[in-house]
Write a protein that binds this DNA or RNA. Sequence first.
DNA 1: GATGAATGAGTGTTCATTCAT
DNA 2: CATGAATGAACACTCATTCAT
Lengths: 202, 202, 202, 202
Amino acid sequence: MEQSGFPEDRRTQILEAAAAVLGEKGYERATMKEIAAHAGIAPGTIYLYFKNKRELLLAIADALITQQVDQALAEATQDTAGYIAAVLRDRIRFARENQAFLQALVAEIWTDRELRERFFTQIIGPVLASGAQYLQAQVAADRLRPCRVEIVVTAVAGSIVILSALRALMPEQLLPGISDDELVEELTRLYLYGLLPRPEKP
Amino acid sequence: MEQSGFPEDRRTQILEAAAAVLGEKGYERATMKEIAAHAGIAPGTIYLYFKNKRELLLAIADALITQQVDQALAEATQDTAGYIAAVLRDRIRFARENQAFLQALVAEIWTDRELRERFFTQIIGPVLASGAQYLQAQVAADRLRPCRVEIVVTAVAGSIVILSALRALMPEQLLPGISDDELVEELTRLYLYGLLPRPEKP
Amino acid sequence: MEQSGFPEDRRTQILEAAAAVLGEKGYERATMKEIAAHAGIAPGTIYLYFKNKRELLLAIADALITQQVDQALAEATQDTAGYIAAVLRDRIRFARENQAFLQALVAEIWTDRELRERFFTQIIGPVLASGAQYLQAQVAADRLRPCRVEIVVTAVAGSIVILSALRALMPEQLLPGISDDELVEELTRLYLYGLLPRPEKP
Amino acid sequence: MEQSGFPEDRRTQILEAAAAVLGEKGYERATMKEIAAHAGIAPGTIYLYFKNKRELLLAIADALITQQVDQALAEATQDTAGYIAAVLRDRIRFARENQAFLQALVAEIWTDRELRERFFTQIIGPVLASGAQYLQAQVAADRLRPCRVEIVVTAVAGSIVILSALRALMPEQLLPGISDDELVEELTRLYLYGLLPRPEKP
DNA sequence: GATGAATGAGTGTTCATTCAT
DNA sequence: CATGAATGAACACTCATTCAT
C-alpha cells in the first residue's frame, strides 16, 4: 500500500512505528498487528526485516546506541558553568528527540536483564564515565572542590533523566509552565554552586 | 493448603506474593498461576480477594500509598544539613524496604496512565510539595539562597530515585562498593552547598 | 462438556482423538483445534496434559510401545508352521487394532529422525531380534534350512507391514475379498516352504 | 540468476530441487522458498511452471510414473530363479535411483487419498499385475507350485519396498554390512524355495 | 520470462478467568 | 472458603501465493 520511495526506508518505517507503539503500550501489551497497522503494512512484512518481536526491541536499542553522543566535547573549552549547562541542555534535547524510543526502552530495561546490561554498558556507562573524567579534571585544577565524582555524576544524570522522562510523560503535572531553559539554568546553578571550591569546612 | 491463622491475612499473603512475582517479572510476564504458587494457594483463590489481575496491581500501589511517610517532619527542628540528610536517608530506606513493590509498580507506572496519575497524585506530589514547602521556609529565613524550589526539589528527588533504583537493579555496576551512608553524605554536601546563601553573584 | 467418569481418562481421550486425527491428516495437517474438537474439549485443555503438539505425537508412540507384544512366546512349543502362522496372525491383529495410531506414526517416522530411531529401537528392533532368534534356533535344530536369518526376518516383517498397511489404507484395491485368515495361510505356506530344509542344493 | 541453456530444462531443474527438498523434509515442512533456493531461482518463478505446491507434488509422481519400468520383460526367457532375482535387483535399483522422489511421495501417499489412488493405479497396480501374470504362467507350466499369486506377489513386493526404504532411511540400523547382492541372493532363495513345486503335502 | 517484497490467513500456544465440586 | 480443570480469545509467527517491476 503505502510505498516509500527508498527500499531501505521500510526498516526505519517499521522501527519508528514500533517505537511509537512500544513507547505507548510497553513491550508485552504492544502487538505486532498494531505495530504493523501503525506502519501501514501487513504483520508478516515486519518479519522480513526483523526476526521476531524481541529483535525489534533490540533494534530500537541499537538505533539509540548508534546515534549516540558526539557529546559536548567540543564545549570542554568553555568554563565550568558553561560545560555543565551544555551537557544538561544536550541531554534534555536528546531525551526529547528520542522520546518514543526511550520510553519504549526504559520499561523493558526495567524488567529485562539482558537489555539492561546492554543499555547500561553501551549508553549509560560511557556517558557517566565521560562526565566523571571531566569533573575529576576540574577538581585537579582546583576549579571544583574535591568530591566523589562518580556519585555526583550519577546524581546529576539521575536528575536529568527523571526530569526529562516525567516532563515527557506528565507535562501537565511535572513543573508545568517551566521551560527547558529555565530548568537548565536552575540546575546549572544548583550543581555549580554545589561543586565550587569552598573556603571553609561546614 | 497453607492456612494462615487469621482470615484477613490471606489478602496480605497474596499481595506480598504478587509484589514479589510482579517485581521480578513485570506485570504482563507475571502469571496468576505463578503468583498463586508463590503464595501457596490455588489460582482461583486470588479471585476471592481481588477482582482481577489489574486490581491486584492497583492494590499493590495502595499498599505503598497507605504505609506512606510520616515524613521527616519531626526532624524539621534540625538544622538544614541535618534535614536534607534525614530526608535522603529516609527515602533511600523506603526504596530499599519496598523494593519489590516499587519495582513492580514503576514498570507499570511508566506505561499506564491511570496508575501513573494515581501514583503521582498520591505519592510523588505530596512528597515534592512537602519538600518544596520546607525549602521555601528556609529561603524565607535566609538559611538558603533564593531559588526555584520546585525545580530543586524535583531534581533532588530524581537523583534519589534513580540512584536507589539502579543500585537495586544493578548492584554490580552502579557505584559498587559505596555504602548508603557514603551516598547520603556526598549528596547532602552536594545539595547543601548548592543551596546555601552565597555572598556574591556568579 | 463431554465429561468422562474418571479423571485420568481425559489423557486417553485426547490421545485417541489425536491418533484419529493424526492418522487421517498426518502430523502437519492435523491441527490442535481439530484434535480438540474431535475429543470434545477446548484447544487449551490439551496443553494441560501434553506440553505441545510434538509431545502428543511422542505420547502416541509411547502408547504403542507400552502396550507392546507379549509375543507368541507361549506358542514356541508349537511346530514351526504353527509358530509362523501365530506370529503373522498376531502382527496383523496388532496392526488392525492400532491402525489409527500406527498410521499416524508411520508418516512421521518416515520424515522424523528422532521418532524413527525411537520407534526402531523400541519396537521394530526387538521384534526382529526375537524372530531372528527363533529362526536361528530352528535352523540349529535342523528344522529349517540354514539361511541369513536377519534378512529373512526383515523380509517377512516387511511383507506383513505392507500388507496390513495397504489393506487398511486401500481395502477396495489391495487383495479385495481375501480374508485375514486366507492371507495368513498363504503367507505361512510361502515362508515355511521357503525355509524348510532341502535335500539337494539348487 | 543461474540461467540454463535450454528453456524447458527449468521445469526439470525445479522438479529435482523439489524432490530433494520434499524428500528430506516432507511435503508440509518443505517451503517453496527453500525449493526455490535449492534450484537457484526465485520463489515466484516456480509458479510460472507449476500452478501451486500441490501440483509440484503431483508432477513428481508423474515424473516417476513416466520413467516407469520397461520391466524385466526381456528377462522372461530366463529360468524362474533368474527372473525372480532380476526383478528384485531391478526394483532395488529403481528405489535407489529415485530415492528422493520416492521418499517425498511415500509420506504423502500415506496420508493423501488422491495421490494414493493415482500412484496405486498407475505404478503399484501394473507392477503387481505383471508379476502375478508371470507367476501364474509359471504355475500353469508346473514350474511353480499352485498358489494365490496375488498374495505372493504383494508379499514379495512388500518385502522389497520395506527393505529398500528402511535401508535408505536407516543404513546404520537395518541390515548393516549387507550388500544389495547378498540381499537379492537370500531373498531369491527364500521366495524361489517357497514357490517351487512340492512332492508331498506338509 | 524472472523477480522477490508484500501479503494475510491460519497455526501452535498461553493464560486470565470461571465455576462445579 | 478453597480448589484447579477447563475454557477460548488473543498472541507471535510462518509461508503459499501474488504482482508491480
